[in-house]
Computed example of a mutant assay.
Amino acid sequence: MLLNLADILLLIHPILACTFIFPVIGIVGYLAWQTRQRRLSAPGETKGKISPQVGREHVAIGNLLAAGVVGITLVALAYGVTYGYQGFLDQAKDGKLSTVQVGFVVVMFILTIISFGILMRTRSKLWRGIFATLAGLGIGVLGWQPGIFHRNDEWYVSHYYFGIVASWLMIFAAAIVQDIYQSKKWRRVHIILNSLALILFILQGVTGTRDLLELPLSWQESVVYSCNFDPKSPEFKTCPK
C-alpha cells in the first residue's frame, strides 16, 4: 500500500468535503431559493406549490452546514498542527516540542468546539454574540499555530484563507439566524454574506484540488522537497538526480 498513516489522515478533510459539505451546500442553496420565492410570491398558486415548511428546513440544514464547515476546518487544522511542516511531529523529532504549547492547542480545540456547540443551542442575542466571537477567535488562533500552511505570498488564492473566512461566515450565519425573521436588514445581510460564502466554497474546491496535487506522499517528501521551487532560479522545477 502506497499510503502511510499520515497520508490516510490527510485525506479525511477532502473526503468530508466531497461526500458531505458540497452536497449539503447544494441542498441549502436550493432551500434558500425556495424560501425566498415563497416569501416574495403573492398568495395563490405559486406560493401554494412551495411547502410552508421550506423555511424551517432551510434553517435546519443551514445549521448542519455551519457545523460541518466548522468541523471540517478543525479537522484540517488538527492535521496541520500535528503533521504539517514544523508541526508537533517535526518539533518532537528536533527535540523542540513544548508540552505547554501542546496543552494550549488542545485546550483551544476543546474551547472552540464547546463555544460553537453553545452557540448552536442558545437563543439569547447576547450569548450568541459572545460564543460566536469565541468560536471565531478559537479558529483564528489555531490557524496561526506552527504546521499550518498559509501560502502568504499568494494569499489571494490561498485555500487556508478562503477556508477560515468561510468558517467565520458560517459562524456569523448561525449567530444571526434568529434575527433574520425579525428584520429585513438582517435578511439582506444574511443573503449577501452567504452568497459570498458560496463563492468561497467554489474557490475552496479549486484551491483544495490544486493543493492535493502539489502535496507528495509522506514517504516521497524527502525527494520532492529537495527540488528547486525558486522561480527566479535557472534550475526552477528541477530535482537532484
Rank of each mutant, 00 (worst) to 15 (best):
K184W: 10
T19R: 03
I72F: 03
Q145V: 15
P23N: 13
P43Q: 13
G80L: 10
L134T: 08
W168C: 02
T238K: 08
L200D: 00
T19C: 08
S124D: 06
A174K: 01
M170D: 00
W144K: 12
F172R: 02
F116R: 00
T46Y: 10
T82C: 09
V189M: 12
D153V: 11
L11K: 12
K184P: 04
H58N: 15
A132C: 10
I110W: 05
V24I: 15
V165H: 06
P43L: 13
D90L: 11
I27C: 01
R38L: 12
K241S: 14
R128T: 02
M120R: 11
I202P: 01
L126I: 10
P234W: 06
L89A: 09
H13F: 11
Q182L: 15
T122S: 03
T207G: 05
V177W: 00
N228W: 06
I199N: 05
S218Q: 13
L137W: 11
A197Q: 02
K184T: 10
L64W: 01
P14Q: 12
T133W: 03
H159L: 15
I118T: 06
I148K: 13
I21S: 01
G44H: 09
I130P: 00
T35L: 01
W219L: 07
K237H: 05
G95P: 04
Y79K: 11
A174T: 04
A42C: 06
L196C: 14
V69Y: 00
D211P: 02
N228M: 11
L97N: 02
G117C: 05
P240R: 14
T73A: 09
Y181L: 14
Y161W: 15
I199C: 13
S167N: 07
F131A: 04
G117R: 04
R188A: 09
H190E: 01
Y79I: 08
V70C: 06
H159V: 14
A66D: 01
C227W: 06
Y83T: 12
M120V: 15
K49R: 13
N228C: 13
I114H: 07
L16Y: 06
L203W: 03
T82H: 07
L65S: 00
N4M: 05
I176P: 00
Y85K: 12
V102M: 12
M108T: 12
G87R: 04
R38Q: 13
G163E: 03
R56W: 12
V223S: 08
Y83A: 13
K232S: 12
T122G: 02
I192Q: 09
I12F: 08
N4A: 06
G84V: 10
W144N: 14
M120Q: 11
A17K: 01
L217R: 05
Y181K: 14
K49M: 15
S218I: 12
V223Y: 08
Q182K: 15
W219P: 02
Q86L: 13
L134C: 07
H159A: 10
Q178P: 08
W127C: 05
